[in-house]
Amino acid sequence: MIVFIIRRSLQSGVVLLLMSVLVFVGVYAIGNPVDILISPEATPQEYEEAIIAMGLDKPMWSQYLTFLNGALHGDLGNSFVFNEPALKLILQRLPATLELAFGALFIAIVLGIPLGLIAGIKSESWVGRSIMSGSILGFSVPTFWVGLMMIMVFAVMLGWLPASGRGQTTDLFGIPVSFFSLDGLSHILLPAVNLGLFKLSLTIRLTRAGTRENLQLDYVKFARAKGLTNGRVIGVHVLKNILIPVVTVLGLELGSLIAFAVVTETIFAWPGMGKLLIDSIGVLDRPIIVAYLLITVTMFIVINFVVDVLYSVLDPRVRLGEEKI
């Protein structure tokens, strides 16, 4: 077991290191940010000074080592545009992105599980069929276009909900959050639904498949034979059994929600780190791009590592399969 954890964490470390080299070399090899940041009227001397001030005159490997050394001490360089630490800027926006991701997850669970249960119980009726068709549509239609249509219908035509921004925030342990005020809630509703739509379809499918499978099993027949009401059989016994796989999959999907938040944040002008990334790519603000990519990749590697270790605890075959290699 310990060998397995050591091997896995070594592998995660190697992946992270490779990613940092790839991202650093790649990002720093493109374009010259000085051209964008310095005014066109600058004298050649001012130009040279700007290059030296940003450390762009040194060779690539030396820049990388400086960067790696800084990264290990939690310093990913200063943003060229904001002139503040890139890590701080990203972390400042992390709560907004996480709030959006959890909001989306909440919507996927709260709507997805009941709809999936209904589709599973009445799989042959028109209700079940239309829920399934809806979920297929949710898989096919690109998220960003649905977001635009939601803005068009709910913000422009009906004028019910705001189309952009985060609205009024209240502080919770020093971190601003939106979902304690009505104004904040009205701002998060559209983006969260938009981001959660894909996961909602996934939840419906998983719940439906689980329900159909479980309804055939003996314990359901036994519960019915005991004379339990239909609501209790499904709401307590079946629900408990289908929740395990659904929750596992959705937990794994949290990472991809953070990645896809880039799209939703851009559409709804949500001040999260995904929008910061897209803005920074536009102005070639390298430290921010590098910091975003490294933080996201690290989050993924940590999530995957935890999941792998948990699985190997729960299912020894995973661990034993590794031994042979």
Binding site: G26, V27, S256, F260, V262, L293, F300
Partner: peptide, 14 residues
């Protein structure tokens, strides 16, 4: 283990 959009984002940023 990474979503495809993240891979594409990394590469296009580069």
């Amino acid at each position: 283990s990474f979503p495809s959009i993240l891979i594409a984002l990394i590469l296009l940023a580069i």
